[in-house]
Design a binder for these strands. Sequence first.
DNA 1: ATGTTC
Length: 488
Amino acid sequence: MSQPTFDADGITLEKVREYVWEIPQEGDMRAPARVLASEPLLEEIKEDKTLEQIKNTTHLPGITKYAICMPDGHQGYGFPVGGVGALDAEDGCISPGSVGYDINCGVRMMRTNLTYDELRGNERELVDSLFANVPSGLGGGGIVESGVDTVDEILARGVDWALEHGHAIESDLLHCEDEGMREGADPSKVSQKAKDRGKNQIGSLGSGNHFLEVQRVTDVFDDDVGEAFGLEEDQIVVLIHCGSRGLGHQTCNDYLRKIEKQHKGLLDRLPDKELAAAPAGSQLAEDYYGAMNAAINFAWVNRQLIMHRTREVFERVFERPWEEMEMELLYDVAHNIAKKEVHEVDGENRELYVHRKGATRAFPAGHPEVPKAYRDVGQPVIIPGSMGAGSYVLRGGEQSMDLTFGSTAHGAGRLMSRTQAKNEYWGGDVRDELEDQQGIYVKAQSGATVAEEAPGVYKDVDEVVRVSDALGIGDKVARTFPVCNIKG
DNA sequence: ATGTTC
């Protein structure tokens, strides 16, 4: 008896087991592709170029085991958003196109000890004060504006720079991947132009889907892990979603241009030029890795400065020291990176460039890279939903190392393009509806951005998380619901 | 995502 299949306009997926679908290797594919999704999600995923794109990624040299599309997968630049590709770090490649333009776009969650009842009535003042004090939108400056010397230090030292300059406390570093400082960052590989773009954007949200949201915890599904994460029902938390701004964008652009010149042979063999890659071991691969790691540090500092500024805003609104409100970083996760990691493949340990594009590292309990505070339960995974839907906190699941190179989904995933969204929605109406019907206060620089980010343009985050939990790659810990949101 | 069109 043959396995059930799913036909998606020319691409046939074979069901491996519940929520695991495979596009078999054929032609020039170097490995199969896997899609981790329920059938309702697959019906949405097949509507754009996601499946074609995940198939294309299997042409990258050194692709190991299989390319993976997460349940929130959607069409991206070359590599699908919600994609994981592990490429051999010795004889494979690193792909700037696959990491994408927003290097270390990611989210962090900060706890407070405030309850929703204590916050009630202050929503308007809070959202206005956050909006006034956290730079957002295109242009608009940063919390720190300085010369490229400062940018160089940030690129090299990450959050350690923020600690020295009074924008962080020690425990912030301990609750960030790599303690907020990526090894192998090489500021000299980041162009002057990228640094110039970044120097006035240190501590700024940016635009698009980036936001700062005050939320309340509505559910804790796992009491033990919830306790380890310091989460309980009705508690107020803050979620910050942003990336490396113009600096990361320029860095991606710079290296795509270099690949066109220096590795055209490899580029021409790829089915999609947007997957542009540099061969492992080449000078350009090393240079990109140094530059990308530096941009990762920049994004961490960006989120750190915004978080620290948020503490100061809460101090003014609630008239007490932020320490008293126990405003501590839960964790910071990167959604767009490549990282050298050692994974067991067919009983052998191999060094791989794990590309996670719109995907989150989800290391399980016991993994040495999980911070000590969470080592017994697994790393926190933060999954933002849309403005109207709220978000999830998961923990890295036991199956993640076997199934997904220690990864899970990163969000709800878009259902329609930004252009389409602006045709369907009007920003002012979306904002009014969120406030009147759900009591969610939204303040944005641009109405167009609100339309582009209307709750209806996103997949059902509940379904995405249900699949992650069922597969055991990221387990449900808590759910949050928006109180107020600022964006670009 | 993005000095929103190299």
